[in-house]
């Protein structure tokens, strides 16, 4: 009897995929570095550079993991990233005293967008793809229309987030690490995390078990928006000033979904976790770095990227019984 319960423990959840994927990514990166003779890439600097490539996409993907786990999806993150980056640089205008107000304002915006998304999906019953595509379009349109009036640059002190560090480790990597650990802790060790898995795995069952499923879905959307905001703030710090297109150009909406799914979180919800998502992000980062070392042209890079996304998901999806949409 006890063994039955032990078998269902969530400890093994998603770990094999994550470990395998991370191992493959690192192996590929090392092999390419050795083959092209860019051994410097394997030193401290190279590794830090590799990890830094993960930050922007990693932050969005952590949030995306929450919404996908509850069986929803968020397409508005790309527009939100742009909005946050533009808003942060406009509010700061290079003035360090405005750093805190700017951050609070940006997170407030994210909170609002996340609430709207969550209400539309959870309480309005609108298909999440359509609801978040809609809110994303709204944000993007308002942003593009008002960008002329929203010029500005972030404070020099704020750029420390992207360029500064402690003991050789950039703050941005620490931020990603801390937020990842926090997300993993919330999902694996708290009641909210358990509810997220319950709602995603079987919404009707969760409801019958007394979980207010709408609230959980709503919260997941808020979490996703806040993570997108963190990513936008990081990009603003790195680029000094935001433009209304950084989110869209980075395809952060679709790529964050792709890495989450590559990491073994299933789109139907209820299965997956932070470790897999981070491994997916690591895969993208090491591919990028390796392609750069190999000097592959930008367009061919895109072709390979597309093929690898499909292949990476196919590896664990192919065993699925039944049909997928």
């Amino acid at each position: 009897m006890t063994t039955d319960i032990a078998k269902n423990k969530p400890a093994a959840r998603g770990l094999p995929v994550a470990v395998l994927l991370a191992g493959l990514s690192i192996g590929f990166f090392v092999a390419v570095a050795l083959a092209t003779g860019e051994v410097a890439q394997l030193g401290g600097q190279g590794i830090v550079g590799l990890l830094q490539r993960m930050v922007a996409l990693g932050l969005v993907a952590l949030g995306q993991t929450f919404v996908i786990l509850v069986g929803s999806i968020d397409l508005s993150v790309a527009a939100l990233i742009s909005a946050v980056a533009v808003l942060a640089s406009h509010v700061m205008q290079g003035d360090p005293a405005m750093i805190l107000p700017a951050i609070l304002l940006c997170l407030g915006l994210c909170l609002a967008v996340g609430l709207v998304n969550g209400v539309l999906v959870a309480y309005g019953g609108i298909n999440p793809l359509i609801a978040t595509l809609g809110t994303g379009l709204i944000v993007q349109g308002v942003l593009a229309a008002s960008f002329g009036a929203l010029q500005g640059a972030v404070a020099r002190e704020f750029q420390v987030l992207a360029y500064g560090g402690v003991l050789g480790v950039p703050y941005s990597i620490l931020l990603l690490a801390v937020l990842s650990l926090a997300a993993a802790f919330v999902l694996d060790r708290t009641l909210f995390g358990a509810r997220v898995y319950a709602v995603g795995g079987n919404p009707e069952g969760a409801r019958l078990a007394g979980i207010r499923t709408e609230r959980v879905t709503l919260s997941a959307h808020v979490v996703a928006s806040l993570f997108a905001g963190a990513s936008g703030l990081y990009l603003a710090a790195r680029l000094q000033s935001g433009t209304p297109w950084i989110g869209r150009d980075g395809i952060y909406d679709l790529e964050s979904i792709a890495v989450t799914v590559i990491g073994g979180t299933i789109l139907a919800g209820g299965k997956g976790g932070v470790a897999g998502t981070l491994a997916g992000v690591l895969l993208f980062a090491s591919l990028d770095a390796a392609f750069n070392m190999l000097g592959i042209d930008a367009f061919l890079k895109q072709v390979l990227r597309g093929a690898i996304v499909v292949a990476a998901v196919a590896i664990h999806a192919v065993r699925t019984k039944g049909h997928v949409a």
């Binding site: 789109l267 895109q302 390979l304 597309g306 499909v310």
Partner: peptide, 18 residues
Amino acid sequence: LKVPSIIATLGAMLSVNG
């Protein structure tokens, strides 16, 4: 391959565009 269509066609979108 049982890849969800949103991912499969996203991959195709990137590849074909590239």
